[in-house]
Nucleic acid binder design. Sequence first.
DNA 1: ATTATTTTTATGTACGCACATAATTGAGTC
DNA 2: GACTCAATTATGTGCGTACATAAAAATAAT
Lengths: 229, 229
Amino acid sequence: MPMGWQDVRDEALRRIQAREWPPGDPIPNEADLADELGCARGTVNRALRDLAEAGWLDRRRKAGTRVRAAPSRRAQLAIPLIRQEVEARGQTFAHTVIARKTASMPARERALLGTLPEDPAQHVQTLYLADGQPYAFEDRWVHLPGTPGFAEASLDTLSPNEWLVQHAPFSRGTLDYGAALAPDYAAAHLNCPSDAPVMVLDRCTFGPETAVTAVRVIYAPGYRLRMQI
Amino acid sequence: MPMGWQDVRDEALRRIQAREWPPGDPIPNEADLADELGCARGTVNRALRDLAEAGWLDRRRKAGTRVRAAPSRRAQLAIPLIRQEVEARGQTFAHTVIARKTASMPARERALLGTLPEDPAQHVQTLYLADGQPYAFEDRWVHLPGTPGFAEASLDTLSPNEWLVQHAPFSRGTLDYGAALAPDYAAAHLNCPSDAPVMVLDRCTFGPETAVTAVRVIYAPGYRLRMQI
DNA sequence: ATTATTTTTATGTACGCACATAATTGAGTC
DNA sequence: GACTCAATTATGTGCGTACATAAAAATAAT
């Protein structure tokens, strides 16, 4: 029974964790390892590539493969739609569009997205509910040149979040979490005191060509962001 | 010049984003795509696997490959040592161990780690500084059976964070961020009012065999958690 | 019709080979 | 010694083939 790449991966990880391959040290090259473990170099390559992506190894052409001294492990955060987030907790999801108007984008959002003052934009405020209770308040600016159809879209069945995910191709973005006291305008909708500590998410989304949207999400008190290594 | 797997990946992503392959629909199989694009099936396989890992596609044996209707994209958060986090901002890093004593682990941490009441443990409180200013306050319980040598380790040069990363093999863990008002005991050290909103990180770490440590990190006001899609 | 069994099929993985590429090493030169 | 440039070498990638595996589809049995 030959070794699969997952077996090679597990064995290599064992040696790293057991300090047989100490931090900072180079490990044998792919050909030797393949020889030792009795598999093809391609198999070893895939296993080590996987460990490198997970942050255990540093690989450079010719320089070889080394065990990372300070393993900067990567946590993966699956970014779900708010609907999925709520429904995964077994609660019913709903949303209400509180305000929506076409206007010119404020300087802060323009700076984040790199858009022009004259670009048409739309401002949408939405409240997300879980089992009827406020879950998050969203303050969103949509860059209309990057989101054809949004200006005319009804947001009754699809939330702005969902509409954009389904209709606006997006390729990259940034997420920026912080803690703050609930701003007055959000606290009113979230049904919480305005001095409650809340998580605030600033998110920018870009399509392959142009900016899509800048959002500030203010989560209700008690929200937690969970992820795994 | 033949297509590399990254080219295939880009072309497939373009078709997804251009709705040539609409959400929910199956895409051509690997063999046909390879034929069409003029490359080997392995190349297509790697490209599509990559897109599946990034959340764009759903793949199942025999069922084929489909475009995800609701792309649950994944953000990657590189979890750095606090030292690296500080130094990356161009500030000097320092730490102070405020308290350290061997004691039995409280029920809350025991529940998180799944350890026994009689297991020896150590409690360490540390203040992390950036340019001399408080950066984060850490309240840590270390499970000694999973961290041989820690009980006797000096924490003068290496912070608990660094010591554990370098000496204790860890394989998986959980991260849990939330917002809270700075607790009194932390506010005193962080030099901030006790009603300031702060980010709180609860982190559990497990080695291949046994639990390693449970930490609560209270970041100074203004801390932001950044990541990218 | 329903259930059990076989066939089919798309993806998953492995192998061996070849060549590309980057970066270190070392030789040669001033 | 410092610099230039070529040889070396470990990883990165691609191809064609082969077989494994899971699950859908088709067939046979009840």
